[in-house]
């Protein structure tokens, strides 16, 4: 299996605060990797370093065999245009959707292909139609984001990222800002993507979702991957005390299987 993404000895500090400490991670094509961990453990920072929303302090990122930047692992240098090109190959979905409010749903989805990839109008439209259909929102193409529910907005944001036909998708707590009844539709969309073979790196607090879709789960603690493995190993039979504590906190109040027939 080919590796879409290789993260080598990635470190990131904000001033004196060391947030990521020599992280190594490879993500193979079509796999879904879920990152869990306590608040402040560096999950968002890890994701944001992958597409250089934050510039790593040290370490290397390799996307489909291409080393991003130049230099040795300890000190890399990057050009703005190189990073912009790299980001175009990676889709990112944010907690707060961040749709462009002055554009319709369709224009939002067409924006990347048009402005960044310089696709012609027919191609932009084809992609917008295709990916809006995929997230089930073709019928909202002409609406403005402010007229959509949170769940619909997030699905548009997913379509917007997909329209770039990225090599890997990053999700940073994509459902955390949603009302509970809207979480399911977004998770469902993400699961379909995983089933289609999209390569995904997901930060989430939805452990049930992680259990269902992840090929691999990472538990991040104090800037290091403390434990990793398949969902069964990490979420059901954790070995590390920190992982157990984290799972205890998440499972304090649990519903027995509701009878929904």
């Amino acid at each position: 299996m080919t590796n879409v993404l290789e993260i080598k000895k990635l470190s990131k500090s904000f001033g004196d605060l060391k947030v990521l400490d020599a992280i190594d991670l490879t993500v193979s094509k079509g796999s879904t990797v879920v990152i869990i961990g306590a608040s402040g453990s560096g999950k968002s920072t890890l994701l944001r370093c992958v597409n250089f929303m934050e510039i790593p302090s040290a370490g290397q990122i390799v996307l489909q065999g291409d080393l991003i930047g130049s230099g040795t692992g300890e000190s890399m240098s990057y050009s703005d245009s190189e990073l912009a090109k790299m980001r175009a190959r990676v889709g990112m979905v944010f907690q707060h959707f961040n749709l462009f409010p002055h554009m319709t749903v369709k224009q939002n989805v067409m924006e990347g292909p048009r402005t960044v990839l310089k696709c012609n109008t027919a191609e932009c439209e084809r992609r917008a139609d295709r990916y809006l259909e995929k997230v089930g929102l073709g019928w909202k193409a002409d609406a403005y984001p402010s007229h959509l529910s949170g769940g619909q907005q997030q699905r548009v944001a997913i379509a917007r990222a997909l329209a770039m036909e990225p090599e890997v998708m990053l999700f940073d707590e994509a459902t955390s800002a949603l009302d509970p009844e809207l979480v399911g539709e977004v998770l469902q969309t993400m699961k379909e993507l995983a089933d289609d073979g999209m390569t995904m790196l997901i930060v989430t607090h939805e452990l049930g979702f992680a259990y269902t879709v992840a090929d691999r789960v990472l538990f991040l603690s104090e800037g290091k991957i403390l434990e990793q493995g398949d969902p069964e190993a990490v979420l059901i039979n954790p070995k590390q005390e920190a992982t157990k504590n984290f799972l205890r906190g998440h499972g304090s109040f649990r519903l027995p299987e509701p009878n929904l027939d």
């Binding site: 912009a84 944010f94 961040n98 749709l99 462009f100 002055h102 924006e111 990347g112 960044v116 770039m164």
Partner: peptide, 27 residues
């Protein structure tokens, strides 16, 4: 303009000029 607008447009691969012209200034 909310910083999320800069973030989202940057994540799409836009450079600063495009971000300003297409996303930030119109709003």
């Amino acid at each position: 303009i909310d910083s999320g607008q800069w973030e989202a447009s940057k994540a799409l691969g836009m450079e600063r000029n495009a971000q300003l012209r297409r996303i930030i200034l119109p709003q």
